[in-house]
Design a protein around this nucleic acid. Structure first.
Length: 456
RNA sequence: GUGGUUGUAGCUCAGUUGGUUAGAGCGUCGGUUUGUGGUACCGAAGGUCGCCGGUUCGAGACCGGUCUUCCACCCCA
């Protein structure tokens, strides 16, 4: 064999079993999305670069896969940027399209573009692959699926309550019990930044705070100091590092920190509303936890921020995330349309279910019955029976070649085909079918109707 | 993008301080006279040792580059 073919870094092939498992997750998510009233849309795998660039911050721009222009693109490239070998500057002149980086920004574009056809509030779901030029790790790929549900056109906090319910419902349906849905609020983060005099350093402040459980209090403080947050401000944060207790008592502690910030108080109100809703409605298997260090998607989230982590003991990054964005469509020219949404990370959920052995046994689709091939005359008779079985809803197939029986039986075994039919000379004479159960090893000589009954 | 790590048969892995024709298990294929498998016995095939270059009389092993894997940053699902 010559050079073995390969696929790009961070991409994967899926075999039939893997596809079956992924479909199981997708079908579960889809069923519940629809039960919650969301409708599907799909958008192109690539967008105009200007739709995506600048929407995810500097880091995001770096991770967007750019598509090279067709034709003689170098001839049309920015000569100055080309001569100076400035990769960043030349990109815009040689690439006008890019692979989508998530489903939220294309959705915002969709809403603005189709605003006159849409009935608001618009609840849409979207299950499609996205691409990121990231360095792969476990559970991190360059091509992966997101399953998003968003609502635009309503600023009601009932939506947030509903999304927490949706997370809980889907993970419970997948038997993935004990997930924690972490929640925070951008307004609280802004409020804290305001109180410590670091309004203009919100991102730096939250990025540092987000690392608290990873690198510890001292290193977080050091990073904040390094980013220019005054020591006096960091001192005011002290109660935050020791915040603990249940949702309610954490809220109380936040209230004392944020009592001078209007925005912070607003954030607390929102959290309380959501928590009260969930406390009354209840959750099946997940838990809702307040996590003031949670800082995600700050480039557009304005209210609630969600992140879901797998049950304790499973080493996997977040398996879902989301939040409220008051002005996402604003960047495409449509003001005052609030949106909120969540995402399920299909690939990571699949890894977690695999690790915890939570996929149902009966998930793989295989043909129900294989007819052994004994020669031309027998094959023709088999095909007639197979045709009738298929019409009656039974998946059936003929082994295409007249090979030794032992080979044909082996084939049935390897494909986990549960039944085999022997239709040979003697069966043809008596107009019967020998049906063998490959699991129990039992076999009977049956009429067509009897066989059909066994297989239905 | 930064630093580290990994790569030997389809799969899981051996392979001594550089030294003859690179091994095992499992799997695959063939046979044990084409009507009974998963679980018997016999046999066979399959490897440019990720790729390119270098050091050496000699490289799977040492050095450089590159690709890939996984990990830590960064960021994220």
């Amino acid at each position: 064999m010559a050079q073995k073919p390969s696929i790009p870094k961070g991409t994967r092939d899926f075999n039939p079993t893997e596809v079956a498992k992924r479909n199981y997750i997708i079908h579960t998510i889809k069923a519940h999305f629809e039960r919650f009233g969301f409708q599907p849309i799909e958008t192109p795998s690539f967008e105009n670069s200007e739709t995506l660039m600048g929407k995810y911050g500097e880091e995001g721009d770096r991770l967007i896969f750019k598509i090279l222009n067709s034709g003689d693109f170098l001839n049309k490239a920015d000569a100055k940027a080309y001569d100076s070998k400035d990769s960043n500057k030349i990109t815009a002149s040689i690439s006008e399209k890019a692979l989508r980086y998530d489903l939220t920004v294309p959705f915002a574009r969709y809403v603005v573009q189709h605003q006159n056809e849409i009935e608001f509030p618009f609840k849409r779901y979207q299950i499609q692959p996205v691409w990121r030029a990231d360095r792969p790790q476990k559970g991190r790929f360059r091509e992966f699926f997101q399953c998003d549900a968003d609502v635009v056109g309503s600023s009601s906090l009932w939506q947030e309550v509903e999304f927490v319910q949706l997370y809980d419902t889907v993970f419970s349906a997948l038997k993935l019990e004990g997930c924690s849905i972490k929640i925070n609020n951008r307004k609280i983060l802004s409020g804290i930044a305001e109180v410590i005099g670091a309004q203009d350093k919100l991102i730096d402040f939250t990025v540092a705070l987000d690392k608290l459980d990873k690198i510890g209090e001292e290193k977080v403080k050091a990073e904040m100091l390094e980013k220019g947050i005054p020591q006096s401000g960091i001192d005011k944060l002290q109660p935050l590092f020791s915040i603990e207790g249940d949702f309610g008592s954490q809220i109380d502690q936040l209230k004392s920190i944020l009592n001078t910030s209007e925005e912070g108080k607003k954030g607390i109100e929102e959290l309380e509303f959501i928590n009260n809703g969930i406390a009354t409605l209840g959750l099946k298997t997940a838990t809702l936890q307040l996590d003031v260090t949670l800082a995600r998607g700050l480039n557009y989230y304005t209210g609630a921020i969600f992140e879901v982590s797998a049950p304790e003991g499973v080493a996997m990054g977040s398996i879902g995330g989301g939040g409220r964005y008051d002005d996402l469509t604003g960047i495409f020219g449509l003001k005052d349309v609030s949106g909120v949404g969540i995402s399920f990370g299909l690939d990571r959920i699949a890894l977690v279910l695999e690790e915890l052995n939570l996929f149902p046994e009966t998930i793989t689709n295989t043909v129900k019955v294989l007819f052994i091939n004994f020669g031309e005359r027998e094959a023709m008779a088999s095909m007639k029976a197979i045709k009738q079985l298929r019409e009656r809803g039974v998946s059936a197939e003929l082994f295409p070649d007249n090979k030794k029986t032992i080979k044909q039986f082996n084939y049935a075994n390897k494909r986990n085909i549960p039944f085999v039919v022997l239709l040979g000379e003697s069966e043809l004479e008596s107009e019967t079918y020998t049906l063998k159960n490959m699991i129990s090893g039992e076999q009977d000589q049956l009429s067509f109707e009897e066989m059909l009954q066994q297989l239905s």
